[in-house]
Design a protein around this nucleic acid. Sequence first.
DNA 1: GTCTATAGGCCGATAGAC
DNA 2: GTCTATCGGCCTATAGAC
Lengths: 198, 198
Amino acid sequence: MGSDRRGGEESASTRTAILDATAQIMREEGYAAVSSRRVADRAGLKSQLVHYHFGTMDELFLALYQRYEEQYFQRHAKALASRNPLRALWELSADTAGAELSLEFIALANHRKAIRKEIARSTERYRSLQVAVISRVAEDLGISEDDMPADVLCFLMVATSRALITEAAVGVSAGHAQMRAYVERRLQALEARSAPET
Amino acid sequence: MGSDRRGGEESASTRTAILDATAQIMREEGYAAVSSRRVADRAGLKSQLVHYHFGTMDELFLALYQRYEEQYFQRHAKALASRNPLRALWELSADTAGAELSLEFIALANHRKAIRKEIARSTERYRSLQVAVISRVAEDLGISEDDMPADVLCFLMVATSRALITEAAVGVSAGHAQMRAYVERRLQALEARSAPET
DNA sequence: GTCTATAGGCCGATAGAC
DNA sequence: GTCTATCGGCCTATAGAC
């Protein structure tokens, strides 16, 4: 890819190494631990290269977010297109490994204006895709829009998975097993209703 | 109060000023923006006083958390003891102003070992108090333990309010009004069942 | 595209005078 | 209990050689 903001040549692999190192540090120690020096150290480079390739740290974070989001968008689209989008969505958002980075971005967005806009925009985009699909399958599954609107169900699922991951990260586990079991029971009940003869 | 870890005399008011300044910065700019110099500036003191009174920054955070928790414990106990604990718990945890600091502490706990233990401990303590009360009122309200266990309902409420606040902080509002309306509807339905003749 | 050098700043924490 | 002075460290970012 020759789409680098500056130069072309052999920069793609360096850029990738820098982004990889940034993601790694964010996951392991949080966004606050990301500095041009630490990133460069982990990538085996000089810290100035980080600035050469990405400019400010905010731009680095944004570039990482965009790369992350491209990958996530594929997984998300696949989940929504699957035979059982409700379960796929749950499993996608309840996947601890993938969600840690996402949570760091949210924390980052909380205090970096430049990041906030981007995160808010894409979060709302995902939400509306999710609600559209849930809305469609809810009809088939006999979930009444009056009792449980699609956007409410969507929000509940996202909120629940996020809370499970956040709490697990700080070492809280009370009620987690019960919560996961409950979701599982509900998903199975819907599946039984959806395909009783398979 | 002469319960300061170091010295007594006139230190209580200085300690309070330092804790107030710390809380203010955390709320406005996040825990990462807290430094002994910034805290001291805002309190009109020298940064060295922060270390004199609290030692390390981790100890400062812990002291603030303990003070915060003492206040919160009172409000929480009052909510659980009220005539309608479910609604009171919802209103307490959905109160944006109060919860911002709490979210900062969770973010902080995510990457500071010393804080993590304390947060985890008190989070689980609150959770178990909540579940006990919900368990009790659920019976009266006709919520079946099989359909919706108390710890699941508790988790759902906490997760939902936390997600609403987190998302609002980064500027996401999609589905929020519907979510709040849904909770309101459910609470009212339960209240109607609980006190039909009042 | 990568290097060295460096400016300029904020940080935690301690020592010692008063 | 509060002050001044200060050490040593890590940070972002830029300038200029190669």
